[in-house]
Design a binder for these strands. Structure first.
Lengths: 219, 219, 219, 219
DNA sequence: TATGAATGAGTTTTCATTCAT
DNA sequence: TATGAATGAAAACTCATTCAT
């Protein structure tokens, strides 16, 4: 069974797409966010100066503040924008899949693909965004909640259909899966791996579905 | 099958134990580290001032620098000290367990127990230490490597004994497990949960061993 | 034979002149340098805080760093600016004098006059700039070299014209003269003398030209 | 006429001599001063730590304060001790010389010789001691006064005997000579010259006595 | 909208000096 | 006398943010 590769698009494609969706303001805003992601990925959030971001974006320092109200908001907006996009796409693409197992697999694929096609974003997501309790508490609850919600819904559907073991807590399973995917992603970023991250989807999901025990001996 | 609860000790017990092991210098060094963990956990690393740590430890600002050469080293020493202790204890206790499945379960138990008994440490580990590429790259490789190595060894032994599926990459499985455990821990910290973290060991390991699929349908 | 007193200008005159020559940036830069010289002269370089300089200049602390990259550079820029000005003026005015003896005398006059008309500068030059090997080695070679070069050229010309004893090392004579002038200046500064420094030109040059021996007995 | 080379002694000789003159306290005090001079010469006064001096002297930090009451006093004591020694020696040796011209020459010789035989001392004298108005004003007056006094006395005697031009201000001439000697010394130190400093005595004194003008044309 | 010069709050770290032993 | 652990004052510099143009 193969990893589904529905058109995830190239990075350039994504840029164009986003640009055409918004007006001029949205376009510039997005342009600044791209610059910020690149700068943060290169030097780390704390070592990056707002003026570095401005220079990368080809605008004056003050202009950044016409679009974002603080350096912090630059970081959280990178997260929000990418998460919105991810969730929008996930919901859209998952709607076309029937089997909850394939839905989960595709969800994992989208997760990895969105990081793989934009390494700057991956670095910001896996490394820079983890700083500070502020982010972890503030954003986790707000936007990650929907991420988890999607997984939970699929799990619950799968349980209703007899595909997943019914006694498992859907909430726990969702965290379990996220933890596994997140660790793969972090590891891929930190190791500066050139290997494909999406190639990990099948092996990871295989363990997730079947566990590590052989002949399914109950432990 | 129950989670093994070999004497993990209380936090107070641990303090006394460490103190008697070292000389006066080690004792004071450790005292400062405790204060730092408490302060960092309370306010976050970046919002904490070295003078806060000094005050918490009941010493002068400058004295901190007689034991640690920078604020950064305070953070990394919290990690190192706890990891050393964890690994030492894990190796010791795992040696007394024969079944690789029980070894993994106990490993997970130790992981959760060491965070649960010291919430300051847990916060520092799950939140504060994730900041900056510097830490992630610097310490990951050095000390986390041994953490992963222990898991891998158990996995491989289990595979040789026919307990774990032989075709799985031990490396991948180790990351998978760590990711799941780490996410549980982070979630426990962020949600300010009063629930027991160690109580999650069995449910988590159950999924890890058996997967989420019902009747083990190969996906 | 009198000391030539070509228009050396007042301090106020000098300020205006420099200001009109540069752009706005140069003007502000120069304004900060004046403030720094005043503060350093008053309290000494090490006892002066950058914030003292900023307050004296009527700007914010950080603004100093938009024009100079360190407190050190403030000190060295005072030297450089004054030396550039001195050398420029010296070369210009010496060009109009034929007799090498009068050239040397005028050179000494300019040296003393530039210190006398700006006591802050004099204090910085004679006292504050002497601190640290760093300055002495760094700037000596770079800018003092031209100072010495001017003297040497005059000496050599004088020797060719039979005015100065040909067997003397021009290099040695230049150091000899500088040493004598420098000591007079330092003494004038340290003693808080109200006496005229330029009044010392003729007596000093007289000894320099004729030596201390009476009836020219060869010693 | 040759530069007199009365036994000025080696540095090792000097150390022994001083040591035997004082008691144990004086000996240790002197030992610390040697260490301080070495450290200050190597790193500069401001970059040197009291603990560096203590380590160089092979004693504990606190012990330094049993002999000197501050880091500042360490610097000024180096000056005082060397000046005392210099003046004592100069007065003693000059007493055996009749001709004021030879006295001056020998005085210059002693000045250069004492720096040449102890480069650490030379660096401290020519560079480190010049820092801060404090030193320049405090010590100049106190101990340099006697230095100048010696020169003035010789000058005045020489004038009475018709050897030096009577109309010259002895005070001015003393400064003139000191300035010239001081500049040679500073130059020798800064240029890291391996050339002999004492070799400069004769050429310098020759200019001092006879001036630079040829055929003694009155300028 | 865009600019970019100016602001000024904020904190780690050093190291001379002390003093209990 | 000697030690050296502990003290704590002190300041250069950065950079996010503002605002007059």
């Amino acid at each position: 069974m193969e990893t589904t590769r529905r058109q995830v698009g190239t990075q350039a494609g994504a840029e164009a797409e986003v640009a055409e969706r918004g007006g001029l303001r949205a376009e510039k805003s997005w342009h600044i966010l791209r610059a910020a992601a690149k700068v943060f990925a290169r030097s780390g959030y704390f070592n990056s100066k707002v003026s570095d971001v401005a220079r990368e974006a080809g605008i004056a320092d003050g202009t950044v503040y016409l679009y974002f109200k603080s350096k912090d908001e630059l970081l959280s907006s990178i997260f929000s924008a990418a998460m919105d996009e991810f969730i929008r796409r996930a919901r859209a693409e998952l709607a076309g899949i029937v089997d909850p197992r394939e839905q989960l697999r595709h969800f994992a694929y989208l997760h990895f693909a969105s990081l793989e096609r934009d390494r700057d974003l991956a670095i910001v997501f896996q490394i820079e965004l983890r700083q500070s309790t502020k982010f972890m508490e503030q954003f986790s609850s707000a936007q990650l909640a929907e991420y988890f919600q999607i997984i939970r819904e699929i799990i619950e559907t799968g349980q209703q259909r007899g595909l997943f073991r019914p006694q498992l807590s859907a909430r726990l399973v969702a965290k379990f899966l996220f933890g596994a995917l997140d660790e793969m992603a972090t590891n891929w970023v930190i190791s500066h791996s050139n290997a494909s991250l999406t190639a990990m989807v099948d092996p990871v999901m295989e363990i997730f579905f079947n566990g590590v025990s052989s002949n399914h001996a109950q432990v």
